[in-house]
Nucleic acid binder design. Structure first.
Length: 741
RNA sequence: AGCGGGAUAGGUUAGCAUGGUUAGACCGACGGGCUCAUAACCCGUAGAUCGAUGGUUCAAAUCCAUCUCCCGCUACCA
């Protein structure tokens, strides 16, 4: 199909740090491939996404960096959009080169004022339709001279009303496991600021009536069973089976979109981020139309036309985001449709009809890309950052590796040896090398007899048939979002080219073109040019940079990315030639060199502060002086002596039955009974490695139950902040229980 | 611990929802060929008790049960 309106929605990256390769493989590369493919097919694609810029984590980052939240999001928004562009993602130009009727792209941000007003408008619509429920909640409030603030449950602790143990959280006790209402907790304290007075205050919040949509979502889900991937089906079913309940859409929050409501009870409240950021898909389309096309043009991508013709909606996201896109967002869309029809909650909502906002056609959610077996993690600095990667490597090599290794069905792994291997042995050896063979062989012909003068397609019917069948397979795979498979088929075409050359041995005829068999052999070599052209077009969604390079080297005009998808198998198109010296499409990678570089980077990372953009071009690497880490204050000696450190010997290490990350460690502390300490060392030590070690522990720490087991102290361990943790052990023998000073 | 997902040749994986061909592919290994090409290319060979056990069935990688290990979310990291 061609001329279809396709809305490609990309999960909004949180502007609280740079993007890493996990993000790219999961959410950002697949939609780019899809968009390029759809455009080549002649479809009208509008690509929307942007930075998600509200919420508490951003204010926390701002506080620790000593700047305001807007500066945080400005910084990461700029960094991320630039990195995505450098990766070749089509966020630019904003308008399709064929004109605004063909759509375009907008990478917006949720701090955009227009986004605020669109969200506020929708908020009022849903409110007026009775789709919000108003509830008074009791929430802890930290009283401060500068005004105070509400505290999320997990920032509060106190004494459990059930078992009376200390350290119970605001809504649940870890020791006995019971849950309770916030006001039942005894002597509550703020975790962040234990000195502050805490009181319970009533706070009113609005809840979106997801329950109203249960039935219609079940219907939608039933319709989608055939297109959804297994992980999407399972996750959505889970939610529907549990039964949908109203979900809070407002929050006691300072950084976000203020409630568009009058009344003192709404002061200091914002629209909850989940409810607001998803609407970006909608606001972004509207704003794109307003800024780059006609104001109403967004409707072509969002609304079912009066004759029932539907745009196609694709959402690209990671597995953690599935229910938001199959349950929550559809229910908001249907809520808006409902409200637009002047209906309220008393009428059951229905699936969208003509003139209404359309629901997703597919949510091809990806699993995760792991890094050397572990999860990408900002805090543990276990990550490869996109900006830093692109400084050192050809973006197409990354695009190739992530495409051929895409986490479509389960988690996959990024590691350097595999990256180098696949780039060298597949991308370069098969594809790059075939292209280079054709171009260098062709280049050796005399100028009076250019390659295409030898063309004779009657010798190439077998190749033509195979290429056409491969083209159909690539197309079908891409239509079903099977990226790995599609790229593999394209690579098969390159392999076919190598086979063809191998059998035709054109190099044996170059010196004497009058030999027997020369005509056929040279016809094959000449067909090699067409095969390169085919490859440039079919590889373009995956490898846009090298495709453009190849396009020029083939002597073609214009840009490869604007070529028609089916032109790849148009054997009638005029053959051309470019007599410049051919250059290899890619450069080989050297694993040892890369590993050395990595070590260098790791060193720099150790020395720098904990700003993960350290190895990013243009990021400020200054102020690495000897200044104390943020928040450090000097301690007077007396206070220090209050800490009682003692030596002990580990005599037994067992798993904690009720916690994944904890060991229960028995220590000989010189006393007869010994003592028990819970320690979060599972990630770093096996029990065998620990038993017998002489360690240092804090002896007079207030004992505390950790998921049911009393921990009497804390072992000292060194933590380098990026995943390395080592116990502090003793140099020589000394009896357990000796004081350390 | 609660919930969800996964396990297929040395590595990466397709197939599994709708049981039924010799379980398909890429990389690597091994043997041979080629010498145009970036230590590249081509041909061939070996390599899989489809995580384990039991069950349903004429038939199970595919469905069911139990178990083991991995991943994610949530909790926990004194």
């Amino acid at each position: 199909m061609s001329g279809e309106h396709v809305l490609v929605c990309v999960a909004w990256p949180y502007a609280n740090g740079p993007l890493h390769l996990g993000h790219v493989a999961g959410c950002y590369l697949p939609p780019d491939i899809q968009t390029r493919f759809e455009r080549a097919k002649g479809n009208k694609v509008l690509l929307v996404s942007g930075s998600d810029e509200h919420g508490t984590p951003i204010t926390v980052t701002a506080e620790t960096m000593g700047i305001d939240p807007q500066s945080v999001v400005d910084k990461y928004h700029a960094l991320n959009i630039q990195a995505l562009k450098n990766l070749g993602c089509v966020w630019e130009p904003n308008v399709d080169t064929r004109g605004p009727e063909y759509g375009g792209a907008l990478f917006n941000r949720t701090s955009d004022k227009d986004h605020h007003s669109i969200v506020s408008e929708n908020f009022i619509k849903l409110l007026d339709a009775g789709l919000f429920e108003r509830k008074v909640m009791q929430q802890y409030y930290e009283v401060r001279s500068d005004g105070g603030r509400f505290l999320p449950d997990r920032y509060v602790e106190g004494i459990c009303p059930g078992c009376k143990s200390e350290g119970a959280r605001g809504d649940q006790c870890d020791t006995c496991g019971i849950t309770y209402e916030a006001h039942e907790l005894l002597s509550p304290k703020s975790k962040m600021n234990p000195e502050a007075d805490i009181e319970i205050r009533d706070t009113e919040h609005l809840f979106y009536r997801l329950d109203v949509f249960q039935k219609v979502l079940e219907e939608h889900s039933k319709n989608q069973q055939k297109v959804w991937k297994a992980n999407v089906r399972a996750m959505t079913k889970q939610w529907l089976d549990m039964g949908l309940r109203p979900r809070a859409v407002t929050r006691d929050l300072s950084w976000g979109i203020p409630l568009p409501l009058d009344g003192d009870e709404w002061l200091g409240k914002c629209i909850y981020v989940w409810f607001e950021a998803v609407q970006g898909y909608y606001s972004c389309a509207k704003l794109w139309a307003k800024r780059y096309a006609k104001v109403d043009d967004w409707e072509k991508w969002w609304k079912i036309s009066p004759d029932g013709k539907k745009p196609r909606h694709l959402y690209f996201l990671g597995k953690d985001n599935i229910p938001f896109h199959t349950i929550i967002w559809p229910s908001i869309i249907m809520g808006l449709n409902h409200a637009n029809k002047g209906l309220d909650f008393s009428t059951p909502p229905s699936l969208p009809g003509p003139g209404e906002l359309h629901l997703e056609d597919n949510v091809p959610a990806m699993e995760y890309l792991m890094l050397a077996g572990g999860q990408f993690s900002k805090s543990r600095k276990h990550a490869i950052w996109l900006p830093s990667f692109l400084e050192r490597f050809d973006p197409d090599t990354l695009r190739y590796y992530l495409s051929i290794n895409m986490p479509e069905n389960h988690d996959t792994d990024f590691n350097w040896p595999d990256f180098v291997e696949r780039v060298n042995a597949e991308l370069i050896a098969a594809y790059g090398n075939f292209v280079h063979r054709v171009l260098t062989l062709g280049n050796r012909l005399p100028e009076s007899m250019p390659l295409h003068s030898f063309e004779n397609l009657t010798y190439c019917t077998e190749e033509i048939n195979k290429l056409e069948s491969l083209h159909a397979q690539i197309t079908s795979s891409l239509e079903r979002h099977r990226f790995k498979e599609a790229l593999r088929f394209s690579m098969n075409a390159a392999q076919l080219g190598n086979q063809m050359l191998q059998n035709a041995t054109p190099w044996t005829y170059l010196n004497d073109l009058t030999q027997d068999g020369s005509k056929e052999s040279m016809a094959k070599l000449s067909f090699g040019w067409r095969l390169c052209r085919y490859l440039a077009i079919t590889m373009q969604p995956f490898l846009p940079f090298s495709s453009e390079k190849l396009w020029k080297m083939l002597g073609e005009n214009g840009k490869c990315e604007t070529q028609k998808w089916y032109s790849a198998i148009d054997w009638d198109c005029a053959a051309k030639w470019n007599n410049h010296d051919p250059k290899p499409l890619f450069n080989r990678l050297d694993l040892n060199e890369i590993l050395e570089q990595e070590q260098e980077l790791a060193k720099i990372s150790d020395e720098s502060n904990d700003d993960p953009s350290h190895n990013v071009k243009g990021a400020n690497r200054k102020k690495e002086g000897k200044k104390m880490p943020e928040g450090t204050t000097h301690l007077d000696f007396e206070t220090f002596t209050k800490v009682e450190l003692r030596t002990g010997k580990i005599i037994e290490v067992k798993d904690h039955d009720n916690a994944d990350k904890l060991y229960v460690v028995k220590i000989n502390d010189g006393s007869e009974a010994g003592r028990t300490i819970c320690a979060g060392l599972k990630e770093y030590y096996s029990p065998d490695q620990m038993v017998g070690k002489s360690i240092v522990f804090v002896a007079n720490l207030k004992p505390k139950k950790l998921r049911g087991i009393l921990s009497e102290g804390m072992m000292l361990a060194a933590d380098n902040g990026k995943g390395g943790v080592t116990l502090v052990t003793l140099d020589g023998d000394i009896e357990p229980g000796s004081e350390v000073r």
